[in-house]
């Protein structure tokens, strides 16, 4: 396990960002080549939303993985968080610019439609987290930084709810996502006995 963790630490942050950037670039290419089907806008909008949610769920899984499986992905957490946020932001922009298109309509939807309100609140929570993901903010905010970034849980939970609210009729998939999100949050609530030592390097490391 320690060897695995050593390998994980060797993977630099810029590589994660590179992979993270490749995905939307590929989506754009696929949209024009026809690989996204006959409605590339919706396909791209949904792909970005879902992949963004997946990446953020992965972020939530990092501390339970370390605690229960002793797999330490902490060095990836910042990059994954920023990438997940970027996908959600792009998801929103595709919805606004290419799908709804009409600005007055965008605004009407944001204030009127519950599932869009929930999605927007989630994005608004993620925004300050992304903006404070740099070392400077970590230093500046000190203990408050940790508290602020706990909001990730709320944002991802709302993302899961947003997913359930926007599908038609009953579908399993969004409920699976919500169950996983709730499960990951619940894991944090488990009593923490005998793991004090493992938690020592509690400061997020620069990637």
């Amino acid at each position: 396990m320690d060897r695995l963790n050593r390998y994980i630490r060797k993977i630099p942050g810029w590589l994660l960002y590179l992979i993270g950037t490749a995905y939307p670039v590929w989506l754009l290419y696929a949209a024009f080549s026809g690989d996204l089907g006959v409605d590339p806008v919706k396909a791209m909008e949904h792909a970005l939303g879902k992949t963004g949610l997946q990446v953020l769920v992965a972020v939530l899984a990092i501390s339970p993985l370390r605690r229960f499986a002793k797999i330490n992905l902490l060095s990836w957490r910042r990059a994954l968080g920023v990438i997940g946020f970027a996908y959600i932001l792009l998801h929103f922009l595709v919805w606004m610019v290419l799908d709804v298109q009409i600005l007055s309509q965008v605004w009407a939807d944001i204030v009127k439609r519950p599932y869009i309100i929930v999605g927007m609140v989630s994005l608004m929570i993620l925004l300050p987290l992304a903006l404070t993901s740099n070392n400077w903010s970590v230093r500046k905010l000190g203990a408050r930084w940790r508290l602020l970034h706990k909001a990730t849980y709320g944002a991802v939970l709302l993302g899961g709810v947003h997913y359930i609210m926007q599908v038609k009729s009953f579908q399993y998939e969004p409920y699976v996502y919500l169950a996983v999100i709730v499960g990951l949050i619940a894991l944090r609530r488990l009593p923490k006995k005998g793991i004090k030592q493992a938690r020592k390097p509690s400061r997020p490391r620069p990637a």
């Binding site: 799908d99 309509q105 439609r113 609210m165 926007q166």
Partner: peptide
């Protein structure tokens, strides 16, 4: 529709 406007539509294709 309760979840979206019906005032406009996106032609597919």
């Amino acid at each position: 529709h309760p979840r979206w406007s019906q005032a406009s539509e996106r032609p597919i294709g």
